[in-house]
C-alpha cells in the first residue's frame, strides 16, 4: 500500500505562552519551539503500522520552506520511506483551499492508495483533508480513530463522535482520512535516528513542476484572509489568586468549602 501523509511544522503551543508581535499581524515567533503538528505524527505512525502489515511505502509531504525539512527528517527517522518538500514563493499566503490545490497536484503525480492528514493544525481549521478529498473525488472521513485493512480495495474505519462513541464505516480506496490523536502510540525518535537520515536528500517540487497555474494558489487566490491577531477576552475572566502558594491554597480551600466541595 502506498500511503501519503500530509504534515505540517507548527509552533508547539501546548507548552508555550503565545504573544503577539508589535503590529499584531503575526504571533511572536522568535522564542517558540517548533515541531510536527501532533495529529500528523499520529498519522505517520498509523501509516507505518499499516505498511508493516501489508507492505508498501510511506511518503511524508509538507508545503513550506527550508525550515520545514526538519519535520520530514524526523518522520523519516520514525520510519517513513520518503520525505518531500513542496516549496515556492508563489505559495505564500495560500488559504486552506490553496494548500489543498497544491497537494492535489502532488497526489496526481504519484500513485497513492491512501492519503492521511492530521485532524487539524495550529489554526484549528480542520479543512485541508476534506477539501483535498473533494478535489480528487475520493471518499473522506474525518476524526478517524481506528483503521483496519479489509482488502486492497477498502478499509474499515471508526470516527470519534460525541460522548466517546465510535461511528464505524467501510470506505473505498483510494481515500483521504484525517487522523485524530490517540489512534495509536507514536514511536519514540532518538537523536541517533535523526542523525541516520540527516544527509538523505529531500526532493523538492515547485509550482512549475506541479503544473500549478499561478492564480489558483497563493495570496491572490485566497478567499479567506487574516486581517490581524488579537488577544481574546472571552467570558468573565478568572479572579486570579496572586499570593504565595500557601496563601493561594488556603484561599482555594475556603472557596471550595463555601461551594460545598469539601467533606
Amino acid at each position: 500500500m502506498e500511503i501519503l501523509v500530509c504534515a505540517r511544522r507548527v509552533p508547539d503551543t501546548s507548552e508555550n505562552e503565545i504573544a503577539l508581535n508589535s503590529t499584531a499581524n503575526d504571533i511572536e515567533r522568535d522564542e517558540l519551539v517548533y515541531s510536527i503538528n501532533e495529529p500528523d505524527n499520529y498519522a505517520v505512525e498509523e501509516a507505518l503500522q499499516m505498511v508493516a502489515k501489508v507492505g508498501g511505502n510511506v511518503t511524508v509531504v509538507t508545503v513550506g520552506g527550508d525550515d520545514d525539512e526538519e519535520i520530514l527528517r524526523r518522520e523519516m527517522a520514525m520510519g517513513a520511506n520518503h520525505g518531500v518538500l513542496i516549496t515556492d514563493d508563489a505559495f505564500t499566503g495560500s488559504d486552506g483551499r490553496g494548500i489543498a490545490t497544491i497537494l492535489k497536484a502532488f497526489v496526481q503525480k504519484g500513485n497513492f492508495d491512501l492519503i492521511l492528514t492530521g485532524v487539524q493544525a495550529e489554526d484549528g481549521a480542520a479543512q485541508v483533508g476534506g477539501m483535498l478529498a473533494a478535489m480528487l473525488d475520493y471518499p473522506f472521513a474525518s476524526l478517524v480513530n481506528s483503521i483496519e485493512i479489509v482488502d486492497g480495495k477498502k478499509l474499515k474505519i471508526s470516527r470519534e463522535i460525541e460522548g466517546g462513541n465510535k461511528e464505524m464505516s467501510e470506505i473505498d480506496l483510494p481515500c483521504v482520512l484525517s487522523i485524530q490523536t490517540g489512534i495509536n502510540e507514536p514511536r519514540y525518535v532518538g537523536m541517533r535516528g535523526i542523525r541516520a537520515v540527516a544527509s538523505v536528500p529531500i526532493p523538492t517540487y515547485d509550482a512549475t513542476q506541479l503544473d500549478l497555474v499561478p492564480n489558483t494558489v497563493g495570496a491572490s487566490a485566497a478567499k479567506v484572509k487574516r486581517v490581524d491577531y488579537f488577544m481574546p477576552t472571552l467570558g468573565k475572566g478568572a479572579e486570579m489568586l496572586t499570593g504565595e502558594r500557601e496563601e493561594n491554597i488556603e484561599k482555594l480551600l475556603e472557596l471550595v468549602a463555601a461551594k460545598g466541595g469539601l467533606k
Binding site: G96, R97, A125, A126, Q127, G129, G130, M131, A134, M135
Partner: peptide, 21 residues
C-alpha cells in the same frame, strides 16, 4: 464531528469560500 466531516468538501463542490470554527 459532522460539520468537520461535511463542510470542507462541500465548500469545494459549491466553489465557495470556507471558514471554519
Amino acid at each position: 464531528h459532522f460539520g468537520i466531516d461535511l463542510a470542507p468538501g462541500l465548500s469545494i463542490k459549491l466553489g465557495a469560500a470556507f471558514v471554519s470554527d
